[in-house]
Design a protein around this nucleic acid. Structure first.
Lengths: 155, 155
DNA sequence: CTTGAATAGTTCAAAATATGAAGTATATGA
DNA sequence: TCATATACTTCATATTTTGAACTATTCAAG
């Protein structure tokens, strides 16, 4: 491989820049969350935030791109601590709906509000930039949930 | 708390949308990386990508927002597998520079190229959108490295 | 109907990862 | 020259994640 090629590859493409930004933000947010809520683990925070309405565990697994056993463990912990309850899904007796308790709803509201602040302070973006970033982020997430879930469940 | 407030908080703000997109992308990319390189762990991939030039371990720790002992462990693994060497930093005899070997450089080039493809296929963005996303991502990363490192090292 | 294959979620033990406190060596500044 | 700070390491522990085997239910074909 030529020196030229090495230099070209080692220089940062927009895709790599984007990824590095995403990783930095992810790590920073995780670190910040870890500081705030001592009682909740990161996965537990994620699950609470996702539960804007009752959801089946499989849906959460797909949404959080993780395996069912992780969802079970996280839901167990949240249920034990009184943040949610499992309720039978009327449309499928194999499935459970995870439903936030009042405590869970309150915690979720706090998390959502806090997450907003964390994002703003971590990112340093102004409102317009945040809106633009959010627009692209939504597009990306849609694409991942559309194209990514089958692969994730496959195997 | 009123029903109205609950609804307002449960609806997704741009910040939360942005975060969810970032999380989805992060998880998807991690999953994809895990599939590709069986010999390298995720942290090892991250470190290789960061090593576009020799860097001190402390710099990497700050950059990857993690603790020194994690960097030591990751560097050990990469050194053992022949991807990099530790070389004394001429300007500070306490410090090491991590320097990629030829094997490491090759692996890095492959990773960077693959990461670009992964980003494109995961995100589904076109070139213009990718450029815009990268621009904002760089801005975010700069802000995090500027404001975040002191907090990370503190304590 | 009944049966077989697929799906939803659970269990649990093993594997991978991360962390923090204590240690060595060097640097820095009074 | 001495005290304190920094760079990195060690290692034992804690946390997190995973996958394979399991129960219960659904679905589709015959």
């Amino acid at each position: 491989m030529t020196t030229d090629t090495n230099q070209r590859l080692s220089r940062l493409t927009p895709e790599i820049q984007a990824m590095m930004g995403v990783y930095a933000l992810y790590w920073k947010l995780e670190e910040s969350f870890a500081r705030i809520e001592t009682e909740l683990s990161q996965q537990e925070c994620h699950m609470l935030v996702k539960l804007d309405q009752p959801k089946r565990m499989g849906v959460l697994a797909a949404d959080m791109l993780t395996v069912p056993s992780t969802i079970t463990a996280t839901a167990d912990a949240l249920e034990r601590a009184g943040y949610l309850t499992r309720q039978p899904d009327p449309s499928d007796r194999r499935a459970w709906l995870l439903v936030l308790t009042d405590k869970g709803t309150e915690a979720r509201n706090m998390l959502v509000a806090t997450a907003g602040e964390l994002f703003r302070s971590a990112s340093g973006l102004n409102d317009a930039e945040t809106a633009e970033f959010a627009r692209l982020a939504c597009k990306i997430r849609d694409n991942i949930l559309k194209t990514g879930i089958p692969e994730g469940l496959k195997k």
